[in-house]
Amino acid sequence: MARPVPAWKAALLSLAILALFLGGWELALTAGPGAGGPAIDPEYAALLGQAAQQGGRTPMPAPSQIAVRLWELLRDPFYVRGPNDQGIGIQVAWSLGRVLLGFFIAALVAIPLGFAIGMSPLLNAALNPFIQVLRPVSPLAWMPLALFTIQDSSISAIFVIFICSIWPMLLNTAFGVANVRREWLNVARTLEAGTWRTAFRVILPAAAPTILTGMRISIGIAWLVIVAAEMLVGGTGIGYWVWNQWNNLSLADIVIAILMIGLVGLALDRLLGLIQGWVSWQE
């Protein structure tokens, strides 16, 4: 049944769905632009001033308006006009920097520790209760504690990324290492390969695909969490930018931010997938 589908067919259908969605969206907004609008409290209208003429509510932007705005933003993504007005490229770069930093520190801790846990049933049993309790904790729950102890909002955000990305890498590394095929270990033993050679030449390559799966899950979670963390921490980053645009009621910018977050997340996942392809093996 599952015959391979030509790529162009799938792409064509994707484009058609996108066109239908955007077209419907555009049409829905032009057909009834706040027709009539609800009655507005005069005092509220006085407060809003000019905005009252729009019917008292911010209209949902149409795709065409979003596209124009997207072009504006992308034409100069790296401008800096004061702390509260920086290009979208800069904001994404801030978020990406935090995610990558937190992620790499987590990898530096999780992979060696996972290796040790995978090799030692004792360590596994001893650390398992801690891991099981800490793993389900929402990374944002750490935020107040991090802010209090670290006293630096930017480092706190990195810490939250660290704490949320450590678990999948730790567990996957431990699992991959503990489940290296017995016969390969026996080969290493009969060849008197020694601890280091066995660890780096047998166990590491054997567990590498599992470890990379853990890293891929981690970076996905880290990218999810950074948006929320930056909304809390403020200052810079795409999460903060989204919150700022919400306060400005620029809905077009929010839609654009969603698009950017999705595209960057996709790129991160693909990158890890690429590395996973390099280290994976088949029998």
């Binding site: 016969e183 390969w184 026996n186 080969v187 009969t190 008197e192 047998v202 054997a206 590498a208 093996w281």
Partner: peptide
């Protein structure tokens, strides 16, 4: 314990799939 003076040919070959034939022998 296991030692280099006794080599084992395993039932299921036990080659390391991430290494080429040459690298398996070189190991």
């Amino acid at each position: 314990g296991p030692a280099l003076d006794r080599a084992v040919v395993f039932q299921g070959h036990a080659l390391m799939p991430w290494l080429t034939a040459e690298q398996n022998v070189a190991f």
